[in-house]
Simulated scan of single mutants.
Amino acid sequence: MPEPKSAFDGLYPCDFYEPAELLEPDQCYTVYEIARLLQDLDPDAGLEPETEDVLLDWAIPWIMTNAEDLVVADPRSDDEPGYYGLRRPEDLPESN
């Protein structure tokens, strides 16, 4: 149910990181690591499953919104998530 703005202690700008501000150009990250980085946490920070679920609610749309600036790598195994990184020209094969 919607809440009046006056019900909150404060309102803040809804600013998100640009991919180049968040990710190192020579690294790939899982969606879980990106979720932590978006909250200024260490990518390896331990989180409760409930907290991680909330952070994923922010990370997944961020990845989709910034897809043009990202590359994706397949998981290395069936029990591992995929990886995302900054798109650089040298990362993609040349098209013919």
Rank of each mutant, 00 (worst) to 15 (best):
M1Q: 14
A7T: 09
G10W: 05
L11M: 13
P13A: 12
P13R: 14
D15N: 15
A20T: 13
A20G: 14
A20Y: 15
E21D: 15
E24Y: 14
P25D: 04
P25W: 01
D26P: 00
D26T: 13
V31R: 04
Y32T: 00
E33G: 05
A35F: 11
R36K: 12
R36C: 05
R36A: 06
L38S: 11
Q39C: 11
Q39H: 14
D40F: 12
L41P: 00
D42L: 05
D42R: 06
A45D: 13
A45L: 06
A45C: 11
A45V: 07
A45G: 11
A45Y: 05
G46S: 14
L47W: 10
L47H: 07
L47Q: 09
P49I: 08
P49G: 06
T51I: 11
T51K: 13
E52L: 09
E52N: 10
E52H: 11
D53G: 07
D53A: 10
L56V: 06
A59Q: 01
I60G: 00
I60K: 10
I60H: 11
P61T: 01
P61R: 03
W62I: 04
W62M: 02
T65A: 07
T65M: 08
A67F: 02
D69C: 04
D69R: 12
D74E: 10
D74N: 09
R76A: 08
R76H: 03
R76W: 00
R76I: 00
E80G: 02
E80Y: 01
G82W: 10
Y83H: 06
R87E: 01
R87Y: 01
P89F: 00
P89W: 00
E90M: 02
D91T: 12
L92W: 01
P93I: 06
P93H: 08
E94T: 15
E94V: 14
S95K: 12
S95W: 08
S95H: 10
N96S: 15
